[in-house]
Design a protein around this nucleic acid. Structure first.
Length: 500
RNA sequence: GGGGAUGAACGCGAAAUGGAAAGCGGGCUGAUUUUCAAUCAGUUGAUUUUGCGAGUUCGAGUCUCGUCAUCCCUGCCA
């Protein structure tokens, strides 16, 4: 039975790279009829927050990634982890290290590590030089009993190589001489990452570990642990990383909210669209077709289709129109204009409601009108936010006139100040007010007034919607309706608001 | 300093076994004589092309070696 897990640490928002890992695990589980589990790795008590845990759960829910069993909180298993570490000491597979703890400053930690490694190399010190490594069991017990603090380290064999076949990256090899005697238990009794992950994965019966490539080299250490614990080693599939446009690591500090999954929810992404986009980062479907539904994604997915090169998430920080990856934006627009209307309507409803534009009638007497309106305007929208922004004039009298649109389509032609109210009269006189009859009336009046129909069309668009662009104008007339159209055409706002 | 991974157009990325460098996004042009980030049509991007330099071969994105760049690991962080 296939069992996979998504194991994020709850330190901050859900990163899109983590979300992608979750998605791949979920797709694989659903594809093979396996089980998808969620484990919160909250062993770093300093940095873990409940708020972050909630955001992870909400994020998975938003993406539609359902997990199959109770959530496991790693901190609940700390005692088991300690027991396991002590047993490894008893079995001689690990040892107590009485070396006093080194204090490190988080800031320059990477530099420190490199410096120390360089120094050790210069002095010819290798990983197996720890004086406590071969301390007798008795001596070790005695010092521990006397209250001397110690960490527990895994005893890595001095010679040999570790190897495993990664499903995405192929055969991996690492000499033991490159692997330190890793710490399993801190001197304060706190179990460390590599120990906890392995123990929890064993207990949860994980068969396939699918995670970011940043763990590729860690995997050798974890395999050593599986072996020391006498447990079956799962299959591994590492995923290429998602990088920022300059190929640097994608981080919240440097790149802000574009890396947070909740941003996409809050800025009007359709979950299925973002899920679809995420699936294409580091994986490609065999057929080459890119718009894939939930079920198609599941059907087409395979671990073998995972790529190896890191993917660049191509956003443009200071460009509002391209604030995130263009392809993600395009895909969202594609979903908005092609998804079944019945799926879209609740999302539009939620958006309008949050902007105080929702009216209960849209669910009732005006249901048909509401559907037609959404159908009309969704054609050129990119996010759900557009329904309350560019789409505002369809749902409210309280909308802005865009200055550039007013100048281009209305103020340029002074005659419009008299002609537009006259046009309103003509439209009001139409018997049955539809796109067709509105068009006929408008064109007839344009002939009479000896102006181009385009003048009225463009001016009307701006008067009725506040904008210079939008759907076919006659459709707009029909949706806005006779009364509201006439009223807006008679408005003096352009001359009041943008006089001079 | 050591070890590991990767390197295809502006971005995502197809190209078993060496045998004509797909598709999508983006850009551009035209049409829609009513706009547009919609729609349709076309087009441009690697062409002394597959980071760079050699080698093996009738033939290399694919194999070998070197080199450069980026990222990861090297922690009593996860």
């Amino acid at each position: 039975m296939t069992r996979v897990r998504f194991a994020p640490s709850p330190t901050g928002y859900l990163h899109i790279g983590a979300a992608r890992s979750a998605l791949f695990n979920w797709l694989f589980a659903r594809k093979v009829g396996g089980t998808f589990l969620l484990r919160i790795e909250d062993t770093d008590l300093q940095r873990s927050t409940d708020e972050s845990t909630r955001s992870i759960i909400e994020g998975l829910e938003w993406l539609g990634l359902d997990y199959d069993e109770e959530i496991v909180f790693q901190s609940d298993n700390a005692e088991k982890h300690r027991v396991a570490a002590r047993r490894l000491v008893e079995e001689g597979k690990a040892y107590r290290d009485f070396t006093p703890k080194e204090q490190r400053e988080d800031k320059s930690i990477k530099q420190n590590i490199a410096d120390r490694a360089r120094a050790h190399a210069a002095e010819g010190i290798d990983h197996r030089n720890n004086p406590f490594r071969d301390l007798s069991q008795d001596e070790s017990e005695r010092r521990a009993a006397a209250g001397e603090p110690f960490a527990i380290r895994l005893k890595v064999a001095p010679e040999g190589v570790s190897h495993f076949a990664d499903i995405a990256y192929g055969e991996q090899e690492r000499a033991f001489s490159e692997i330190e005697d890793l710490v399993l238990l801190r001197s304060d009794g706190h179990p460390l990452y590599n120990l906890s992950v392995v123990l929890d994965d064993i207990e949860m019966g994980i068969t396939h570990v699918i995670r970011g490539q940043d763990h590729l080299t860690n995997t050798h250490k974890q395999i050593l642990l599986y072996q020391a614990l006498g447990a079956a080693i799962p299959q591994f599939a590492h995923l290429p990383l998602i990088l920022a446009p300059n190929k640097a690591k994608l981080s919240k500090r440097k790149h802000g909210e574009v890396v947070s999954l909740t941003t996409y929810r809050d800025r009007g992404f359709v979950p299925a669209a973002f899920r679809n986009f995420l699936a294409l980062l580091g994986w490609s479907p065999p057929e080459g077709r890119e718009i894939l539904s939930r079920d198609e994604l599941i059907n087409e997915f395979s671990l073998e289709g995972i790529g190896r090169a890191n993917a660049v998430f191509n956003f443009h920080e200071n460009d509002p129109r391209h604030w995130t990856d263009d392809k993600a934006l395009w895909m969202n627009a594609e979903y908005i204009r092609t998804m079944p209307l019945t799926d879209l309507l609740p999302m539009v409803k939620a958006e309008l409601r949050s902007e105080k534009l929702w009216r209960e009638e849209y669910d009732d007497d005006e249901r048909a009108w509401f559907e037609k309106a959404v159908e009309l305007i969704r054609q050129r929208f990119f996010t759900l936010k557009d329904f309350s922004a560019q789409g505002r004039a369809y749902f409210s009298e309280d909308f802005d006139l865009e200055e550039a649109a007013v100048r281009k389509n209305i103020l340029k032609e002074p005659k419009l100040k008299e002609l537009l109210p006259a046009l309103a009269d003509r439209l009001e006189a139409v018997e049955l007010f539809t796109a067709t009859t509105a068009e006929a009336a408008l064109r007839a009046f344009a002939d009479e007034a000896a102006v181009k129909a385009g003048l009225f069309i463009n001016a009307s668009r701006t008067m009725l919607t506040g904008q210079a662009v939008g759907p076919s104008m006659f459709e707009v007339f029909e949706i806005i309706g006779r009364e509201r159209s006439a009223m807006r055409l008679r408005s003096q706002r352009p001359w009041h608001e943008f006089a001079g």
